[in-house]
């Protein structure tokens, strides 16, 4: 329980630090702390695999790309100045949205707890992590992912693939997508000339 409160306070504190900071790199560090605390939270829930994947995917891959871009763009740039206070104007919509979100959350939590406690016996295998057949272990996670949830898994993979191809199409070549090789050559030449003109 103590672990829950320490991690919870770290999570909320780092999240607030992340969004209120004026220096983007500080926000990245705050987010890193947030992800680490979240992974530790998963560990306390026996979701070992999820904790590790959280670290590898979010902290190790996605966040480092954020940092890569931010560090390159904002090196030596003065922090953003705080603009005029817009909070009063958006106050009422914000409260309405918050209430709706809270309503959804309460409904979801009620539903999930009702379902979860309906079909689990007290001896359900939540406990020592390690062996197969235990909630959150690597083997069970993999089995569920590749049998019960195979279709969603494959669709997600397809969506990611589309995104990757899109990125290559947009950024891989200097020229945008064109119908023919000849037209591509023309676009490249135009872009080269534009770059040269800009350099003068």
């Amino acid at each position: 329980m103590a672990a829950f409160w320490i991690l919870g306070i770290t999570l909320i504190g780092s999240a607030i630090w992340c969004i209120t900071n004026t220096k983007p790199v500080y926000s990245v560090v705050a987010l890193l702390l947030n992800f680490a605390a979240l992974a530790a939270m998963y560990l306390t829930l026996n979701a070992e695999f999820l904790a590790v994947i959280q670290m590898i995917v979010y902290s190790g891959a996605i966040l480092i790309l954020f940092l890569f871009v931010i560090a390159l763009l904002s090196s030596g740039v003065t922090p953003f100045s705080v603009g005029p206070n817009k909070l009063p104007r958006i106050g009422i919509p914000a409260v309405v949205v918050l209430l709706i979100a809270l309503g959804f959350l309460t409904y979801a939590v009620n539903r999930v707890t009702a379902n979860a406690f309906a079909n689990t016996s007290p001896t359900s295998p939540v406990g020592p992590v390690g062996t197969a057949g235990v909630f959150g272990s690597v083997a069970d996670f993999g089995k569920a992912l590749f049998t019960t949830y195979l279709l969603p898994f494959e669709i997600t993979a397809l969506v990611l693939m589309v995104a990757v191809i899109g990125v290559i199409l947009l950024a891989g070549d200097q020229a945008p997508y064109v119908a023919s090789q000849k037209q591509a050559e023309e676009v490249r030449r135009e872009m080269r000339e534009a770059i040269l003109r800009g350099g003068e």
């Binding site: 790199v25 695999f49 590790v52 670290m55 480092i64 940092l67 560090a71 992590v129 272990s137």
Partner: peptide, 29 residues
């Protein structure tokens, strides 16, 4: 500790290691 997801844990930790270098190089100004 004998972690069931040992190898993955290892990958997770080493993937954090790059932050020290990236942040250190950036922060030197």
């Amino acid at each position: 500790g004998n972690v069931n997801a040992g190898i993955l844990f290892l990958l997770a930790i080493t993937s954090i290691g790059v932050y020290g270098i990236t942040l250190g190089g950036w922060a030197s100004g």
